[in-house]
Computed example of a mutant assay.
Amino acid sequence: MASASTAFTSLPLIDVSGLYSDKSSDRIAVADRLGKAAREVGFFYVTGHRVDGEMRARLLDQTKRFFAQPVERKMDVYIGNSTNHRGYVPEGEEVLVGGKRDKKEALDLGRDLPADHADVVAGTPMIGPNQWPELDGFREDITAYYDAVFELGRRLLTGFALALGKEEGFFQRFVTRPPSQLRLLHYPFDATAEDVQGFGAHTDYECFTLLLPTAPGLEVMNGEGAWVDVPLVPDAFVVNIGDMMEVWTNGQFVATSHRVRKVQEERYSFPLFFACDYDTVVAPLDELIAPGDAPRFEPIRAGEHLFAQTVQSFTYLRERLARGEIVLPKNAKALSSFGQAARHDAPTGKAGHG
């Protein structure tokens, strides 16, 4: 596998079934492969997981039902009606750099927390209840999928800990009630869209992402600034490192820029953005800083980074910001601060994540 600073041309495929093994040697073997992929590419396929096919099929069926509704029905759960960034995202709500319209619609969901939960009462951004559409079985099927993929994310987190020389549970204390978002994404069919941007180049703001796509279109940028296609692999998730894991590892793990291009067929995509708890202060681990060197990153409060990037990406939030209803956290980073696209000074059109 080529270094992240060179032109890798494909993504590694990792069977993670060993992470479920009682044998530590099996778990360590998978962790070694995860660490290699995270350092050298920042993107990889995952097979051997336990998110079964019937659950994935129900997710797709329910998603198709939702997006097939008239726009006015979908707008019943418009994200702008939410106080915690949950709900329907119509096409154009996420605006790319230069004002380009984003060719997708979405339903953004997360872990439901009741109104009397301490984090909700405290007004913690990105935390709280979902807006659920009134479709039979929708909430149950989507929640079951969320729980299964989140559990897969926990397994990967143990592997990343081992890959960094930590004990398996090192990161688990940071994921007790994270704002981990599940997006149901729909890229409509457009026969004229041979070279139309479906979603601009970006990195993901959280620790890592578990993506289930239904059609081609995803591309990742290698270390030389070239775009590499990510073809579909049956029964596989696509996993990519996010900003927080790049910071934690002092840049050893790579948050790789990616985009959706050339959407020539109807496409659905399901990323779960695996976050750590909102108030987690993420800073480079001491042992990953070479003696005599300064850390490559300043400490970042994980939730504040996520919130700041989201505010800068969504029209309704930028309008709230302009009216003084919300404020950006201090030291908020500008969009496109991570990833190869930023390092190559490429036009990214970063518009959130998905």
Rank of each mutant, 00 (worst) to 15 (best):
T214I: 09
A57E: 14
L19W: 04
L328M: 03
K23I: 14
G349M: 10
E266M: 12
R343V: 11
G123N: 01
A215Y: 12
T158C: 15
D112R: 02
E134Y: 05
P216E: 11
L184S: 07
E105K: 12
E246I: 07
P12F: 02
Q340D: 07
R177M: 14
F8R: 01
T209N: 06
K100T: 14
F253C: 04
T124G: 13
P12A: 01
D108K: 00
G303E: 04
Y187T: 15
F170Q: 12
Q69N: 03
P178K: 14
A342Y: 08
M75A: 15
D15C: 01
E194C: 04
I28V: 12
L218S: 03
G292I: 07
T63W: 11
S180V: 01
D76M: 07
G159T: 14
V233S: 07
L210R: 00
D279M: 08
M55E: 15
G42P: 00
K262D: 15
H344I: 00
D141W: 04
D277L: 10
P329V: 13
L19R: 05
A275N: 10
I14M: 09
P234F: 05
D141P: 03
V281P: 08
H202L: 06
V71G: 09
K166S: 15
K100Q: 05
C207R: 08
F174Y: 06
M126V: 10
T209F: 07
R86K: 14
Y20D: 03
V228I: 13
Q340Y: 10
Y78D: 15
F338E: 01
L321G: 01
A7S: 13
E325W: 03
T249L: 05
E40W: 00
I127Y: 08
H85I: 13
H186W: 08
F150R: 06
S269N: 06
K64V: 14
L152M: 15
L335I: 14
M244K: 05
E265I: 01
R39I: 11
H85F: 11
L317P: 04
I241D: 12
R323W: 07
G169E: 13
F138M: 04
N130L: 09
I28G: 02
G354M: 01
P291Y: 01
K330W: 04
T63F: 12
P188W: 05
Y268M: 00
C207V: 12
A302W: 05
L113M: 05
E91F: 13
S337I: 12
V16E: 08
N250V: 07
L285W: 13
A332W: 03
T209E: 07
M244S: 12
G48A: 06
A38I: 10
H258L: 00
D26K: 00
P299K: 00
V89A: 06
W248R: 02
N222C: 04
